[in-house]
Simulated scan of single mutants.
Amino acid sequence: MAVDAKLIAERRTEFGKGAARRIRRTDRIPAVLYGHGQDPIHLTLEGHATMMALKTSNALLEIENPDATKNELAIAREVQVNPVTRHIEHVDLIIVKRGEKIEVDIPIHVDGEAAPGTIVSVDNQTLLVSAEATHIPEYFEVSVEGREVGDHLYAADVTLPKGVELIADPEMLIVNISAELSEEQLEAELESEAVDEEVAAATGAESDEDAEAGTEDAEGDSDEEKSED
């Protein structure tokens, strides 16, 4: 597996939320690099280049590390993304070496068309495997072509490349093929959900009334106690 991107790192010298905001305003991203017994190194990475590199799942990155005599190979172990702006706010990088195996979650892509009148449900979007650090698959492809109602695909059914070992439970459900609901069934399900919502709302209202009544009783008791005093 070739390196997906080379990122130029700079040593991070200031910390805290305010410092992180200032770093991001300069189109850089706070990051930490660790692994192989090395003390964590706090860095900043190029904002746009990092964002583009991490579009590839489990991208192999070459980090130009200012505290090392050579560049480090790394993958992103955790990426924090702002839920509103979708900008990357922080990246945890783990150092990897050629030849070593690491555990990674690999995305699953579902391909093909199941039989008419079926619904394809993907129960798990990723599969945990052990793979050579510099030969991590980008994704696993699972075909549902012609699959009938009642068919299931499990982790053990996913074809793995040579050298990749399954870590997830072999019986973990990946894809479930079920029957498409008829209009009558869909209407009945919607009606049932509406009834459940009405019951929940009524139950909530009763609980609120009970709580208010309890408060009034407590206040009444308190007034009586004061009058007795």
Score class of each variant (00 low, 15 high):
23 I>C: 11
24 R>Y: 11
24 R>G: 12
25 R>E: 15
25 R>Q: 15
28 R>Y: 07
28 R>C: 09
29 I>V: 14
30 P>F: 08
30 P>N: 09
30 P>M: 10
32 V>D: 08
34 Y>E: 04
35 G>I: 11
36 H>G: 07
36 H>E: 09
36 H>P: 03
37 G>F: 10
37 G>M: 06
37 G>P: 05
39 D>P: 03
39 D>N: 13
40 P>K: 07
41 I>V: 15
41 I>C: 14
42 H>D: 09
42 H>N: 15
44 T>I: 15
45 L>F: 06
45 L>V: 10
45 L>S: 05
46 E>P: 02
47 G>N: 06
48 H>K: 13
49 A>Y: 00
49 A>H: 09
50 T>R: 04
50 T>G: 06
52 M>R: 15
53 A>V: 03
55 K>I: 01
57 S>N: 10
58 N>C: 05
59 A>Y: 02
59 A>V: 12
61 L>A: 11
62 E>S: 13
62 E>I: 01
64 E>T: 03
65 N>T: 14
66 P>K: 05
66 P>N: 10
67 D>N: 13
67 D>W: 00
67 D>A: 14
68 A>G: 00
69 T>W: 01
72 E>T: 03
72 E>K: 09
74 A>W: 04
74 A>N: 03
74 A>C: 11
77 R>N: 10
78 E>G: 01
79 V>C: 03
80 Q>H: 12
83 P>I: 06
83 P>H: 03
86 R>S: 11
86 R>K: 13
89 E>M: 14
89 E>T: 14
89 E>V: 12
90 H>A: 06
90 H>T: 02
90 H>W: 01
91 V>A: 05
92 D>L: 05
92 D>E: 10
94 I>S: 07
95 I>G: 07
96 V>A: 08
96 V>T: 08
96 V>M: 12
96 V>D: 08
98 R>A: 15
100 E>I: 12
100 E>K: 08
102 I>K: 09
103 E>G: 07
104 V>A: 06
105 D>H: 13
107 P>M: 11
108 I>E: 01
109 H>N: 13
110 V>S: 01
112 G>M: 03
112 G>L: 05
114 A>T: 03
115 A>P: 02
116 P>H: 12
119 I>W: 05
119 I>L: 15
119 I>C: 03
120 V>F: 05
121 S>N: 14
122 V>S: 01
122 V>C: 02
123 D>P: 00
124 N>T: 06
124 N>Q: 14
125 Q>G: 00
130 S>D: 01
131 A>C: 08
133 A>F: 03
133 A>S: 11
135 H>A: 15
137 P>Y: 02
137 P>S: 03
138 E>S: 05
138 E>Q: 09
138 E>R: 13
142 V>H: 07
144 V>G: 06
145 E>W: 00
146 G>A: 05
147 R>S: 10
148 E>L: 11
150 G>Y: 07
150 G>P: 04
152 H>R: 12
153 L>H: 00
156 A>C: 01
157 D>P: 01
158 V>G: 04
159 T>Q: 12
159 T>S: 10
159 T>M: 11
